[in-house]
């Protein structure tokens, strides 16, 4: 089954991105295809490669980047939400790309399910 994921929160204020990450790993393990992960609202902060969590904390920016590249997942950061938060191409972690909100709607149309993680 093709599953789309929407993440509306960043790595440090809400559990949303952690929950989405674990859901995504479990879905891949069960043989599902992750059609796209779309990062919206403060979720765009999940793509900020300048983020430096403390050493005993998990690094969701790296985790998403690695998971995306290992499994060829389309990690899309909303351009409107990103620009207003200063997230630009030059600070976007490898494996993510910036694109429009249309990509979210398209994921809703093309994927069999869309799961929303947010606040």
């Amino acid at each position: 089954m093709k599953i789309g994921i929407l993440i509306n929160e960043g790595p440090f204020t809400h559990q949303a991105s952690d929950s989405a990450y674990r859901f995504t790993v479990a879905a891949l393990a069960k043989g599902h295809e992750i059609y796209r992960v779309f990062f919206y609202k403060d979720g765009v902060n999940n793509a900020n490669k300048l983020s430096e969590p403390q050493t005993d904390d998990r690094n969701l920016v790296s985790l998403w980047s690695e998971l995306g590249q290992e499994n060829d997942i389309d990690l899309v950061v909303c351009v409107a939400a990103a620009l207003r938060r200063g997230i630009k191409d030059e600070i976007v972690k490898e494996g993510f790309r910036i694109s429009g909100l249309g990509q979210l709607v398209e994921a809703g149309i093309q994927a069999d399910r869309l799961v929303v993680f947010g606040d």
């Binding site: 089954m1 599953i3 509306n8 479990a26 879905a27 069960k30 399910r113 799961v115 929303v116 947010g118």
Partner: peptide
Amino acid sequence: VDYEGFVDLVAEHDANQSWL
């Protein structure tokens, strides 16, 4: 359920809705 059970629930239901 665990995360795999979460995935199964999403797959088994026609649609899902998050009450944020």
